[in-house]
Design a binder for these strands. Structure first.
Lengths: 250, 250
DNA sequence: CCAAAAGTGTTCATTCTACACCCATGG
DNA sequence: CCATGGGTGTAGAATGAACACTTTTGG
């Protein structure tokens, strides 16, 4: 989050407040809470984002990222799982909190604070669903994102920054790939995500030297070139390494 | 946040929900919102945390980290600045969002979602204040933290993890030091924070090679050893480097 | 004088980078 | 046969770790 988490030295805006104890406590319990989730997928070398056409007011019919109000008796991560499930039919998706958006006027119908998330999904398993809050769902190239409802363009951009940062410092990129992948596919993913070029020999040595990939006894099939060896991410090995002080880099 | 942001693959807890459209919209606007801030200071090689004795119910009289309800018409970062100002008399403090805590039952008087922050202050400028929500304020050694109100021990520990992570990847450590400091002081800070030992020659070379310190024409005074050259952090230079792709490490 | 921390230079090992080369497949 | 990406080895450069040595202050 090198970029997403800026140094923060801004001055107080000068807003004025009635002292705490002179305001009835009920006044403090009028916030709405929502979650909004930037869902990433990766296909043919292109990073894509799930956008919906909103099925409810406000901003009905407009583009938005998936999200919904949190129920009064619902934990926040349960709400995220609910939304992701309703949207994709998938459970156990990877997701991570990014940032809270709480501008007083960010929502037209009242004070709604929203918690931003990003989620990574393997596009091959994806199964689109409409739902109560989404008329329809589309994968959009990350470079073609239209104007979105609320402050969703901001949330999306911060989600993207966070993803780009996370992917260098934690082994999360694998979530975007099929379970079995070649080193070449992994390299293209990183190159696409970070907009860089790596030497294939060096990339290979680097990633294999981390000892967190399990080499399978299988190769690619039906490719018009020498088929690559398949690997899968070995979470147990990674956790073990991490506990010994190892830290993923690039 | 290598550790603070865990891979998140938990299953849905199985909570059950009445469909969205059958619940009156008012029911969704009954959340309270608060901010809680882990305030770090550094003195004599020891990392310290500002704790308060709560001056209001619930948990009146108990240890807690500084925090307060957000006003219905108040932006969240304005609330953070307000709290830090009331607490320390200082403005323009460094602070950064960590994580949202939204467990349904985390607050005894209702559904209060809190946004966690950490803040860094130069202990020399510190000026303690009591306030509406704090009877008294103390610096506590990070290793002697008592049992705290609410889920504040959790918030504190996550704040500490975040600090330890940030300090390696962004030049935030300087916020804990006086404006003018020696390389030795900087090294001790890092050693204390991260619980490591560095070679002084190598540490010096490394930090100076980053070109983000301004060498002053002043030395330490009144020290019983050769006085060290004073430096200050040059934010302009750092921003310039960052925009050229430089990234702070350790 | 001594203790204590500042500050510098050099050596050796490790890691990174660039690049050349061979391999296996489909068309 | 070719094009395409898979896969390996190596030399030289850059970086990092360890450590010895000199300097300047107060007591």
């Amino acid at each position: 989050m090198e970029d997403a988490q800026e140094l923060n030295h801004k001055k107080d805006s000068g807003q004025y407040h009635i002292p705490y104890y002179q305001i009835p406590i009920d006044k403090f319990f009028q916030f709405g809470l929502s979650v909004d989730c930037v869902v990433f997928g990766y296909q043919d070398g292109i990073l894509k984002i799930l956008l919906i056409k909103r099925g409810a007011e406000p901003f009905k019919g407009q583009w938005a990222i998936p999200g919904d109000l949190v129920y009064p008796n619902e934990d926040i991560d349960v709400a995220v799982r609910r939304i992701l499930h309703d949207l994709t039919g998938l459970d156990n998706l990877y997701f991570e909190q990014t940032k809270v958006y709480g501008q007083v006027d960010r929502h037209p119908i009242g004070r709604v604070v929203t918690v931003g998330y990003y989620s990574l999904i393997n596009i091959e398993n994806y199964n689109p669903h409409a739902s109560a809050w989404a008329d329809s769902v589309y994968w959009i190239d990350v470079n073609d994102v239209p104007k979105l409802a609320f402050d969703h363009n901001l949330i999306l951009n911060n989600g993207l920054k966070t993803l780009r940062y996370s992917v260098r410092n934690r082994p999360v990129g694998f979530e975007l790939l099929p379970t079995k992948f070649t080193i070449g596919q992994l390299q293209s993913l990183y190159e696409g995500l970070l907009n860089e070029k790596y030497d294939k020999a060096n990339f290979r040595k680097r990633i294999l030297s981390m000892n967190m990939l399990r080499e399978l006894k299988e190769n690619q099939i039906n490719v018009p070139h020498r088929p690559g060896r398949l690997y899968s991410f070995d979470k147990e090995k990674y956790d073990q390494l991490k506990s010994k002080g190892f830290s993923f880099e690039l």
